[in-house]
Each structure stands twice: as structure tokens, then as C-alpha cells.
Nucleic acid binder design. Structure first.
Length: 270
DNA sequence: CGCTGACCCTGACGGC
DNA sequence: TGCCGTCAGGGTCAGC
């Protein structure tokens, strides 16, 4: 489910309900997601105040004084805030974190590609190899240009590689490349400095727009069916195979790149 | 080192 | 109605 905008929307949705609250207990209903969930999580978190909810890439970080809980939503994961009366857990509700004021943070993930991990030092190995945040100023055209020289991987794979830049998922990779007028199959090393300028701007723009859209539905977040609404946003090419290109009316094409659906306009993108 | 493809898992959907 | 194949927005890892 989540691309970066949805993770950020989730962070903003849950943070005001749980920041400053103390954990009363943790319920684990499954011992493994992508990786094993620490089985001592209840002992680790019990009576600990949650200081802050932050995000790095698509990882949510629940910060405590003695470490942080790292949560990744994978393809199908989600977090919900529940208030009394707490509904019975469904089939894929794997973890509940119950706070002393009665609020529950519930993690669900049908496909179980997500993870819930603990890090003592706040410097988990999953985070150490990550590239810059796309919305940071350190992420710019020069950075991408320098990094991409002599790289033969296609540009879509290049921007989706979290070592290069984090948070650009399959939907927004197609969208940003369309906006920048770059064919997804172009070798990263062949993309000019000027075109990286455009691409960098496009990545920032699509993600910012999507986060803004997600923000509009934050009020629904504590509902039982609360889903961030970024999915409703206007997508220019993703999922629009055969439909007219918004710029030139040419039919949108679909191809598979690195096992992922890729949408583009063969006329606007070169 | 860089790149490609296999893989993890369940559910939704379309065709027959 | 049910069965089967296909596909899905995440990421890691082995192997070439």
C-alpha cells in the first residue's frame, strides 16, 4: 500500500494520539513478519513514555528514551489509532501497542512484507545505507548527476534504489519520469545534468503534492476504516495504459521493468 | 562493484 | 458459483 506520502501521512495521523503517552502493554499475535518481531517487546516498552514519532525513508520510528521501534508497512501494512471500545482484532492485526490512556496503536499487514523491529542505539543497520530524503535540500540535481555517471541501470531503477534516494516508489517513479519527460528505460549514466534538474524537481513536486493530498484526509485517521486518501490523487500515467496522455493524447504505454509495472508516454518521454 | 531476477505473502479481480 | 491465473504501491539477497 504505502509509498512515502502515505507513510508520512500515517506518521502525522498517529503522532498526536500517542506522543507523550506511556505504553501500558504490547500484544503480539504473530511472531514473524518479514523478520521476527522481538518477542520481548512488551517488557521493552512497558511503562516507557513514547517521546516522538519520526520517519526515515519509509520507516516509522517510535522514539523512546532507551531506543526506537522501527516499523515498515511493506506493501500492505497499515497503522490505526483505536479508542475505546477497542474492536476485536481481525485476521491480520498482528501487533497492538496499548497506551495508559486507553489509546491503541494497531498494526495490520495481510501480506506481511512489513516489519516491526527494535533498535537500542537508534542506528539500525537497515537505516545506515540509505540515501538522502527526497525532500531535503541535500537531494539535488548535482547529487543525482554525480552519482549516476557510468551507471548502466535504467533511470527508473536508479531513482527507486534507496541507496541513491529514499522514498521514490513504483507509482511516483513513473509519475516523476513522465513529468520530467524522461523515458524510464534510459541508462542513468546517459541522463544529462539539465534533465536531472527537471527530474529532481519532479520527484520533489509529486511527493509534496501527494503528501498534501494525504493531509486532507487526516481527520479520518482514527476511524476504524480510516485510510489515508492520497490514492485518490490525480495520477498522470500510473495505471493508465491505453488512455490518452494528459500532455499529447498519445496512448499511455505499459512495460515491465525489474518486475515492476512501468507506465509512460512514448511520445512525451525520450 | 553493479546489475538482474527470484523471492517473501495474501487478497482482489477477471475469465471461463 | 467456483476454480485458476495474474497482479499488487515494499525491500533483500544470491549469483553472475
Amino acid at each position: 500500500m504505502p509509498e512515502l506520502p502515505e507513510v508520512e501521512t500515517t506518521r502525522r495521523g498517529i503522532a498526536p494520539h500517542i506522543e507523550g503517552q506511556t505504553v501500558q502493554r504490547v500484544i503480539l499475535r504473530r511472531d514473524t513478519l518479514r523478520w521476527p518481531i522481538p518477542d520481548n517487546l512488551d517488557r521493552l516498552l512497558r511503562n516507557q513514555p513514547l517521546q516522538q514519532v519520526t520517519r526515515r525513508a519509509k520507516y516509522l520510528q517510535l522514539q523512546f528514551a532507551h531506543g526506537m521501534l522501527l516499523i515498515h508497512l511493506g506493501m500492505s501494512g497499515g497503522l490505526r489509532i483505536l479508542h475505546s471500545p477497542i474492536p476485536a482484532p481481525g485476521k491480520h492485526d498482528h501487533v497492538d501497542i496499548i497506551f495508559s490512556n486507553g489509546t491503541v496503536l494497531r498494526f495490520h499487514d495481510p501480506r506481511r512484507f512489513g516489519c516491526v523491529l527494535w533498535s537500542d542505539d537508534g542506528n539500525h543497520s537497515l537505516l545506515t545505507e540509505l540515501g538522502p530524503e527526497p525532500l531535503d535540500d541535500t537531494f539535488d540535481a548535482q547529487y543525482l548527476f554525480d552519482l549516476s555517471r557510468k551507471k548502466t541501470v535504467n533511470i527508473k531503477g536508479f531513482i527507486m534504489n534507496s541507496r541513491n534516494v529514499v522514498g521514490v516508489g513504483n507509482i511516483y517513479a513513473s509519475e516523476a519520469l513522465f513529468m520530467a519527460g524522461i523515458l524510464p528505460t534510459t541508462a542513468a549514466g546517459d541522463v544529462s545534468r539539465a534533465r536531472f534538474e527537471k527530474l529532481c524537481q519532479s520527484i520533489k513536486l509529486v511527493l509534496t503534492r501527494a503528501i498534501d493530498q494525504g493531509g486532507t484526509t487526516l481527520k479520518d485517521f482514527s476511524n476504524s476504516d480510516g485510510k489515508p486518501g492520497y490514492f485518490a490523487q490525480q495520477l498522470q500515467v500510473y495505471g493508465r495504459e491505453g488512455l490518452p496522455c494528459p500532455k499529447c493524447a498519445n496512448a499511455i504505454s505499459k512495460s515491465i521493468l525489474a518486475q515492476r509495472a512501468t507506465y509512460y508516454c512514448g511520445r512525451c518521454q525520450r
